[in-house]
């Protein structure tokens, strides 16, 4: 009885592991643009937090302006790089082919 159960368990495990029902698609690689979009979201969240904390009276105006300028500069750099990469992607042969279709 135990032997039969053991054989059944092994067969079940083999079936489950190796019977992959459909062709597994390759997982996409994370692109630089995706990374920059994530980074942009973080900087925006930091800006929103800063704005809220300023309204809550945690920082004097001078500190707030300094921190805001620093974060906005960081956001600007990220946006510029995203725009640059988008432009490169738009001018790539695959993108042009896609536009023609």
């Amino acid at each position: 009885m135990i032997l039969l159960t053991a054989v059944a368990l092994t067969a079940l495990a083999f079936y489950y592991v190796f019977h992959v029902p459909e062709q597994a698609a390759p997982a996409p690689e994370k692109s630089r643009v995706t990374f920059l979009q994530e980074r942009k979201e973080v900087v925006y969240e930091n800006l929103r937090d800063l704005n809220f904390e300023f309204k809550a009276g945690k920082f004097p105006p001078a500190d707030y302006e300094r921190m805001k300028a620093s974060l906005e500069q960081e956001a600007a750099l990220i946006l510029a790089e995203i725009a640059e990469l988008d432009a490169v992607r738009a001018s790539s042969p695959e993108a042009r082919k896609g536009q023609r279709n």
């Binding site: 929103r48 704005n51 309204k55 906005e72």
Partner: peptide, 16 residues
């Protein structure tokens, strides 16, 4: 928030 995306400015109330 959408405005912030467009203008690169934070939303007025957020607390994150």
């Amino acid at each position: 928030k959408q405005g912030a995306d467009a203008q690169m400015h934070p939303a007025p109330v957020g607390a994150g």
